[in-house]
């Protein structure tokens, strides 16, 4: 077994030798894959990058979310995951709010779209998000598209090359969430949509960058 091999649940990979495991499990020294995915072996870690599955929140991930419910002390946010995230007032607003007088929907209302950061995930997967992040913001207008979360890295490309290419050529504003939700606004929105859909469908093929460049020229 080597890096880039496809592995399946239960497939033996190699000896652990003290390394970290990601999407793998060990029995004694023996390491097996937990999921269907692509193997990545390094000196520090044996990791499997899943080829399918739901978005499961991790601290530090930046996600696109949609306000789902307004509560007394914060907001419930749909983050395209089995788990809803909570955005508490303290993580959303700088100013003091008198909760007796102010309805929180004044700041974020049901259906509003935000780009936020996963700030806390407990063992039982209680999830909190925060707006206290450099690039967190409320996203006005635009439209959301949904892709399978594990294809997000393809859409972003190496060092953001792919998404920057699409943005500049289509003159759009795009926010890509790790959770597979992508917000697009302005410019040739439909073209950007088309490119991202193509990347999702053909994420596993080679020559993708070339193909997208061509689509953007045409």
């Amino acid at each position: 077994m080597q890096t880039r091999d496809i592995v399946l649940p239960g497939m033996y990979i190699e000896e652990r030798k003290g390394r970290k495991l990601n999407n793998c499990y060990s029995e004694g020294e023996k390491v097996y894959s937990k999921v269907l995915g692509i193997l990545k072996i390094s000196e520090e870690e044996i990791s499997v990058i899943p080829l399918a599955g739901k978005y499961i929140p991790k601290v530090g991930d930046r996600v696109v979310g949609v306000i789902d419910e307004v509560e007394v002390s914060g907001w419930w946010v749909d983050i395209n995951s089995p788990y809803k995230a909570f955005l508490p007032i303290g993580e959303a607003l700088e100013e003091f709010v008198d909760l007796k007088k102010v309805d929180l929907s004044r700041f974020y209302d049901i259906g509003d779209v935000i780009f936020c950061k996963i700030s806390k995930v407990t063992k039982n997967k209680i999830v909190q998000v925060s707006m206290k992040d450099m690039i967190a913001r409320k996203l006005f207008g635009g439209a959301i598209m949904k892709i399978t979360p594990f294809k997000v890295p393809r859409v972003i490309g190496k060092g953001g090359s792919m998404i920057e290419l699409i943005k500049s050529k289509t003159k759009t504003e795009i926010y890509v969430g790790q959770n597979g939700l992508i917000w697009v606004k302005g410019g040739k929105k439909e073209k950007a949509w088309e490119c991202i859909s193509t990347i999702e469908k053909e994420a596993h093929t080679s020559g993708l960058t070339e193909k997208i460049s061509k689509m953007l020229e045409g």
Partner: peptide
């Protein structure tokens, strides 16, 4: 289950 990305000990 495997194709849904669900983690398993084995098929």
């Amino acid at each position: 289950l495997a194709s849904a990305g669900i983690p398993m000990k084995d098929l």
